[in-house]
Design a protein around this nucleic acid. Structure first.
Lengths: 348, 348
DNA sequence: TTGTATGCGTTATCAC
DNA sequence: GTGATAACGCATACAA
């Protein structure tokens, strides 16, 4: 069923049908409009977007490139993108790079995959997407991975310092400040900091800076033995817990930069000394659902994933519709999630 | 950059360039082919898929309709679809229905959303997708929700008994058999069964049938008080644990039909009697990562999500390429994941 | 207000 | 082997 067939059925020209479909008001009489609409309805005609795209030289489709759709943050971000796009009748072509599977979970290797990433971009460009959202599996600088493009591109959950493009991510700094304020108010002074291994990792770096700054402001000296760097894994958490409680003067609260390591700490403690029930507090990061399944429940910070996706899509469409608008680089606020793993310092 | 511009640059006709691009062997001399290829390379020409789709009357794009992309099974299934599609140069347009958000987690309400689902399908049809994969948020009959279509549609993680279309899901029955065999071999005879609330739910029904059958085969009578129906939630698990241990003759093992309820049981027990460490076993279902984070670690069953997606995509493309091929309705095997929550019956 | 005709970038048919 | 040229379904400039 095409516009041409409809026009014949209605006894009008294709132009008229087109006017009706596109609601060109004032171009067609009410009587004709009604007749055409009726025929369209009766025949179940639906316009062909492909022909329309060819004619209009824009596909009304964006590409979404996910470094890893099975990583926890990606589905929420995609849901956010979707909810913006459906309001404005834009499609999304999704491509999953499976980057962590192919490159392993070490940021360094990702560079090897520059070619894969750009091949995926080429494929999106063949589909003539009007713009691209790039979703990182990790909040880091990916600017050197993505080649120059003649369509807008917005980074979500990652960023670039080299290409000036827009990005939307989450606010590490204020989240860390909030955690530390809570920790101070619960009378903790011996505060351990358990990070990922990698110096390239922006969230780790930003949060460490806040940790340093806020401790200094409270007059608490930094202690080397309270600072750990691991590989973000559950088992790293278990290991760090053992090391930290074995210290001569152990911390009363442990800030873990992700929920996996925090979960490992809780498990290690519950399987051994159970001091995590009273003496030692733990705070995680990411807001995984399982935080509330643990004993004790894990205090953590949930990320504004849907909002990141929504804002990224919104920004992308702004750039598509106005090629030389300003770029936007934004951190969205996270939300603290309370849990019984964070309690008042019993020794204070 | 179009085929026309390339043809001028190369001093040949558009037809010739098209032959070169599409590798029509024997249609063009080596000399000309090389020249054209060089010009294409130099100018970074990439063919316009939209024009090609219009001409060929197939978009080489499929639609993926996800009832809820943030539900645990969906990302893995999409990853599987993606990995099949990228081999054969097909795109996927993704649409997320957010069904559970809009309808709540009660299957009944989903019927109200028949219109939303079919509107989403219409939108995919406007994009002229060659076929559709429908991913359920829950393994159930969705045939009455999806209207008749003139392109192939394959259900993933759900099914239809009314429209004869293909579906790919996971094998409940053999998984349940495997669990029960393990449970018997660990000398358990008092076996509780904790299900979801809904009779419409196929997995619950199938697994209950196996439970009944296998217990009968072992000469173990069914006990009403060992059978619970909840809402699949963590808190339901907590509640059921309390009820089951309060029985005069409590079970020695509890089979939970999902990991959330199983997690709730573990938490409830660890917060109270801690009998789950020795006396009472629990088995979950779904293979969530958090199963291994719990204390004790949760024995569960992981689902072949990527494979479901992969096979669904494969089947869809078979149907696209051969309109009257046979449909396929397949259960894929799951994998048992051991955990310390399942142990030998200490009273046997 | 409505109709005619052109072109968007391809592929494919049919000449040469 | 290669080149004109006609579709594919639509939107729109222009004519009527």
């Amino acid at each position: 069923m095409t516009i041409n067939e409809i026009s014949k059925l209605a006894g009008v020209s294709t132009a008229t049908v087109s006017y009706v479909i596109n609601n060109k008001s004032g171009c067609v009489s009410e009587e004709v409009r009604a007749r055409v609409l009726k025929i369209i309805e009766e025949n179940g005609y639906v316009p062909n977007k492909i022909a329309r795209s060819l004619r209009e030289k824009r596909s009304k489709t964006i590409g979404v490139l996910a470094e890893d759709i099975t990583h926890f943050q990606t589905p929420g971000i995609i849901a956010g993108i979707n909810s913006y796009l459906e309001q404005i009748d834009i499609h999304m072509i999704l491509n999953n790079l499976s980057l962590t599977q192919k490159a392993g979970e070490h940021t360094g290797n990702v560079l090897q995959h520059k070619k894969e990433i750009n091949d995926a971009i080429d494929i999106l460009m063949e589909a003539r997407v009007d713009g691209i959202i790039y979703i990182g599996w990790q909040d880091r600088d990916v600017g050197n991975l993505v080649k120059p493009l003649n369509v807008p591109l917005v980074y979500a959950y990652c960023f670039s310092e080299v290409d000036g493009r827009s990005w939307i991510s989450y606010d590490n700094e204020s989240s860390m400040e909030e955690i530390l304020d809570k920790v101070f108010s619960l009378k903790h002074r011996k505060i351990a900091f358990v990070s990922g291994g990698d110096e390239l990792c922006r969230p780790a770096e930003m949060r460490f800076n806040i940790y340093q700054k806020k401790l200094a402001a409270e007059g608490i000296p930094l202690r080397r033995e309270y600072i750990k760097h691991g590989d973000w894994s559950f088992n790293a958490g278990r290991q760090f817990y053992r090391e930290l409680v074995a210290l001569e003067d152990p911390p009363t609260v442990i800030l873990s930069l992700n929920d996996h390591m925090a979960g490992g700490m809780i498990k290690e403690s519950m399987d051994t000394d159970r001091r995590i029930l009273n003496e030692i507090s733990v705070v995680g990061f990411n807001g995984f659902e399982f935080a509330s399944f643990l004993s004790p429940t894990l205090a953590t910070v949930s990320l504004p994933l849907e909002q990141i996706g929504y804002e990224a899509a919104k920004q992308l469409l702004t750039e598509i519709n106005n090629k030389n608008c300003e770029h936007k680089q934004e951190f969205l606020k996270c939300q603290f999630v309370n849990g019984s793993s964070l309690k008042i310092n019993p020794f204070a």
